[in-house]
Amino acid sequence: METPRIRAYAFGFIASVLLTVIPFGLVMASRFPRIGVVAGIAAAGTLQVLVHLRCFLAVRTLSDARWNILFLILTALIIILFVGGSIWIMHDLNYRMM
């Protein structure tokens, strides 16, 4: 019981460091096209979030944690709606007025 979890933390740490080095490296090398860099940052970031969820927070598709996962997904959807909606609205308003 104990060793698998310690392994998970160790793996999570190494993966996180790697997934941090990559985006920093992409930006600091400053020789890649911006679109690629931004995509790389987003991808690495998303992956690292998943690594954290899986290795540190032990979020699996357990029946026990069913409601936790439901709320996590709901929160993600709400965030996409609020953030996406706000950016769309403000961008549109700014384009027409500022």
């Binding site: 709400i78 609205i89 549109d92 308003l93 384009y95 007025m97």
Partner: peptide, 18 residues
Amino acid sequence: SFAVWLHHFFTMGASPPV
């Protein structure tokens, strides 16, 4: 109800699609 809030400020000047 989470996706309708702009109706409180239709006249603030957003474009028709919004």
